[in-house]
């Protein structure tokens, strides 16, 4: 019975991490849009290349934040959560 419970905990943590990383879609689309527009801008005004590139990189970094939140949660679910949850389970059984 205990093995089953621990198995369910580990499986759910892995599934949760996978589901959390669906958030990667958002920054992907957003950064794609940003880079596309930056390419258009450089095509129209090649002399502004430096400014456009730095601004685009800043925007990309800010847009990336939500994806990184998801990454942090996924990493917590994989590396930290199973140990914590198994400990809680053991304590309740005692």
């Amino acid at each position: 019975m205990l093995e089953l419970a621990i198995g369910i905990i580990l499986g759910s943590c892995a599934l949760g991490a996978g589901v959390a990383m669906i958030a990667g879609i958002g920054p992907g689309i957003g950064e794609g849009n940003a880079v596309a527009k930056a390419c258009e801008a450089i095509g129209r005004q090649p002399e502004c290349k430096g400014n456009v590139t730095t601004t685009m990189l800043m925007g990309c970094a800010v847009a990336e934040t939500t994806g990184l939140y998801a990454l942090v949660i996924a990493i917590l679910l994989i590396f930290v959560a199973p140990g914590r949850l198994v400990n809680i389970l053991m304590d309740t059984i005692k």
Partner: peptide, 16 residues
Amino acid sequence: ISMAFRHYGNVLSGSV
């Protein structure tokens, strides 16, 4: 929070 996680997440994801 976002500044800390942005920097840490980028470097850590690279190493992972």
